[in-house]
Design a protein around this nucleic acid. Structure first.
Lengths: 120, 120
DNA sequence: CCTCGACGGTATCTATTGGTAACTGGCTAC
DNA sequence: GTAGCCAGTTACCAATAGATACCGTCGAGG
């Protein structure tokens, strides 16, 4: 009943990572940084409507997890640059497997939902 | 700045699917049903502590998405059996790509977190 | 007749999270 | 002087996740 030994353990670290992947913004940050470092506002503008508070939270968590680095240039006006670490970059592959699956199955899922909702 | 044309669109269906993947329980239900259909209580007991309400929500959503089927046998006591659809089963592959990545990088992430938390 | 337990859930409440709107500080340009 | 830029922070609110308790139906046991 267990995948690789611990997927069903509530304290399983793998689950924590799944939470990150599932996090709406983390994935978008990774994809945004694919092609190079970006500043805070560049990320904010590139990703759709994201509240600065939420973006900050996401970035701090990703920095803590070692997925990105945060470099502060104490200039005026301030400049903060976010860069994918090698580990962060290695996430692109798994993410695209998921998004490929998603894009392949979107039509089927939409159809299933319509069938489910119809009788109501 | 866009992955495959729409990953950054808030209404993008791919994002909806990512939310499902990221959902703590959906993944565990898929993995639980890998080896065959299960009843509600079997799922509840197999997956760690999950509130019945939350499990019900998860299962309904997955049924709506066409990932599982729900068969009700109006016996006494009632019997409800959940089964992976082919589409649901096809999720196992992408999921294991993610969990493989996660398990590979758990040590590095843990180390990164410790380094981040230490100075405080 | 009365209670008990199995099953597959609801009902109700609280805690956590996601999100909005407004504000900060230092400096520069108008 | 005041308006704006950057990179956030703070105060606040709404939606969601989750824990706990309860429900109805039925047969078994006393």
């Amino acid at each position: 009943m267990v995948t690789k030994g611990n997927a069903f353990d509530p304290n399983c670290p793998t689950r924590t990572i799944l939470d990150r992947i599932g996090d709406k913004w983390t994935v978008l940050v990774v994809l945004s940084l694919r092609s190079g470092p970006l500043r805070f506002t560049e990320l904010r503008d590139g990703i759709g409507r994201v509240a600065p508070k939420v973006l900050t939270q996401t970035l701090r968590r990703m920095e803590r997890d070692g997925l990105i680095t945060r470099e502060v240039y104490p200039e005026i006006p301030p400049r903060v640059v976010y860069t994918l670490t090698p580990m962060g970059a290695s996430l692109i592959e798994p993410i695209s497997v998921i998004t490929d699956w998603a894009e392949t199955h979107v039509p089927a899922i939409t159809r299933a939902q319509q069938r489910y909702d119809e009788p109501a």
